[in-house]
């Protein structure tokens, strides 16, 4: 099908279809991404690009005071959040998906319910839970007291030891419906005779889930793992709205997204924006996420089994 045989009219028609979206993508996705790489090699004064400084912004952010300690602390928080969310967001999501796939009475209702928080804005979720986690008047501590766990009530967002975990739990509440329904779609794609064959061979329910269903939903696992990874390392809205731009208390909830925002825009009012170090952070976050998710995707894909 060589396009050279096409009449001129059709060639113009296809160009009319393709060129505008292509130009738009180039201008507002590709160019900004490429520019970010260039910007990171410059020293900036406010909104002005001043001197080419080579790798200085990168080495500052990774190795030198006052940047490096903040970078690495934030990075370690991102890692912790990611690990915990793998368990309580993706893990619980898989369990819920399996439960929903049993088509017990009310499963349609439960499916709609688990996905409801997913469609709400992070702003609503963050602000509601910020009030609910209020030490004295918050819903969370009141429910704890009511259930007889009064001794455990604590200012969850006010303590360095608990704040990050409180935010992580709120994130899991917000998003658990997403992996749930991705896994559910995966389970429903398994041909019923495979599961039936297992049952006829007398495997118990645990073996069925761990040895048959889990390996067969590997494609869903790939997607939910990678999306969670990308999300955890770009985490911004929830900590920004619930813990503030400094990652209160005492930086215990500081993550890379917040640090990047503070560096690039945080001091907008005082005119002390630092686009150079900000770009270096963004580029490294981008490279880290892109490289790890590419490698991980390849490894995860390898364990996916083709269902004939």
């Amino acid at each position: 099908m060589a396009d050279l045989e096409w009449p001129v009219g059709r060639r113009i028609w296809v160009a009319t279809l393709i060129v505008p979206p292509l130009a738009f993508m180039t201008a507002f996705v590709v160019m900004p991404i490429l520019s970010a790489f260039v910007y990171a090699f410059y020293h900036w004064e406010g909104l002005k690009r001043v001197d080419f400084v080579g790798l200085k912004n990168f080495t500052d952010v990774l190795l030198h005071e006052p940047w490096a300690p903040v970078t690495w602390r934030a990075f370690s928080h991102n890692v912790m959040v990611f690990v915990v969310l793998m368990l309580i967001q993706n893990g619980v999501g898989f369990l819920l998906a399996y439960a929903l796939s049993r088509q017990l009475p009310g499963h349609r209702f439960h499916r709609v319910a688990v996905f409801l928080p997913v469609i709400l804005s992070s702003v609503i979720v963050a602000l509601v839970w910020k009030q609910f986690l209020h030490p004295v008047f918050g819903l969370f501590n009141k429910v704890l007291s009511l259930a007889g766990f009064g001794t455990f009530t604590t200012p969850w967002l006010g303590l360095s030891e608990t704040a990050l975990w409180a935010l992580t739990l709120v994130n899991a509440w917000h998003w658990v419906g997403f992996p749930t329904l991705v896994f559910l779609a995966g389970i429903q794609r398994i041909p019923p005779d495979i599961i039936e064959a297992g049952r006829i061979d007398g495997v118990n329910e645990w073996q069925l889930v761990s040895k048959i269903i889990w390996p067969l939903v590997a494609p869903s696992a790939t997607v939910t793992f990678i999306l969670l990874f990308i999300g955890a390392f770009n985490w911004f809205e929830l900590p920004y709205l619930m813990a503030g731009v400094e990652g209160s208390p005492y930086g215990s909830t500081d993550v890379l997204g917040l640090y990047f925002y503070r560096t690039a825009f945080g001091n907008q009012s005082s005119g002390a924006q630092d686009f150079g170090h900000g770009s270096a952070l963004a580029v490294m976050m981008f490279l880290f996420v892109a490289v790890i998710s590419a490698i991980w995707t390849v490894r995860l894909r390898r364990r996916e089994i083709e269902i004939a």
Partner: peptide, 15 residues
């Protein structure tokens, strides 16, 4: 699809 546009926020701001 792979690119979180958030990370290009500085160039977008200038643009």
């Amino acid at each position: 699809l792979m690119v979180p546009l958030k990370l290009a926020i500085i160039p977008l701001f200038i643009q």
